[in-house]
Amino acid sequence: MNAPDPTQCRWHVYADKAALQDAAVSAILDSAALSIRERDRFNLVLAGGETPREIYQRLRSAPTDWSLWHIYFSDERCVPPTEAELNSHMAGEAWLDHVPIPRTQIHIIPSGPRADKAAEEYAQTLRGVDPFDLTLLGLGKDGHTASLFPGNEWGVAPDSPDTLAVFNSPVRPPQRVTLSVARLNRSRQIIFLVSGESKRRAVARWRAGEHIPARAIMGENGVDVLVESSLLS
């Protein structure tokens, strides 16, 4: 990837999904190695949804010291904890249940029953964790990222709370917990993973400079967007 620039959104274009996944796995492991070498721990924020599933699966065999990984989540749906649609369930099934990261270092967002209570609890979990080493994010077809949706509060101000309760998500379930823009931006590195035809219009809007939630994300070293070439044609 290009050298970090705090003012830039850097677009990295890949021929297909497999090439994008290769780059994502390499970037995650490079970030882990650097963070462990410099700070003796790796604070990683995971994206939800289906785009990163195969990336997570490939991390199972990574040559790394799992005892130094600390896992956080960018957002979560407020549904019963047995629901398969939980981001934490997907990450566990694909990856986290198969590697020896200490369970106390996998910081799952409470899934309910009330978004405001869950947000308050996760804010306490994040207290003293600053900044993240790497944050992974996705892109929704409406331009949302994490559970920061158009028309809702994004928590952009520097003094915004770390977590936000969402009660009116335009896609089910309506209640969610999300990290705020301000908290996500306190990351040494931010990588968006963008794959799938449904993201084409959101990518075009982002590159045209429209005010979509994803565009509000800009970490201290800028942002890297990994995208399939077919979405730019």
Rank of each mutant, 00 (worst) to 15 (best):
H144Y: 09
E220C: 02
G143E: 04
A118H: 02
A24G: 05
A23V: 04
W69C: 06
V45P: 00
M90G: 02
E76N: 06
S198V: 15
N2G: 05
D5A: 04
A19T: 11
A27I: 01
G128M: 07
S198Q: 15
T51E: 02
A208G: 10
L232Q: 13
M90K: 10
R103F: 13
V177P: 00
I28D: 01
R58C: 13
I71W: 11
L148G: 00
W95R: 04
S74C: 14
G140W: 02
S35W: 04
N152I: 03
T178I: 08
H107F: 06
I36T: 10
E83S: 15
L193H: 01
Q175G: 01
L139R: 00
V129T: 13
L46D: 04
P174E: 06
D22N: 13
A204I: 07
S111Q: 08
R114I: 06
L164K: 04
H107V: 08
R41M: 11
C9E: 09
R188C: 11
S160D: 13
W206I: 02
A3P: 06
A62H: 14
S180I: 06
L86F: 09
G196Y: 03
G112P: 02
A202M: 13
L96T: 06
R60K: 15
W69S: 04
D224S: 08
G155S: 10
A91L: 07
T145I: 12
L193Q: 03
L20V: 13
A118D: 03
V171P: 06
A32C: 14
V171N: 10
H211W: 08
S35G: 10
N87F: 13
S195A: 15
L96Q: 07
P113Q: 15
H144M: 11
G138M: 04
G209T: 07
W206Q: 01
A23S: 09
L226H: 10
S147E: 10
P158T: 12
T104D: 15
A27W: 01
P113G: 15
P80V: 12
A208D: 14
R103I: 15
E50C: 14
I190N: 00
E83W: 09
D159Q: 14
E220Y: 00
T7L: 07
D40I: 04
I55V: 15
A32P: 02
L164D: 01
H12Y: 10
E197T: 14
H89M: 05
Y14M: 08
A202P: 08
W154F: 11
A157P: 10
T7I: 06
K199F: 09
E76V: 06
A84D: 13
G48K: 05
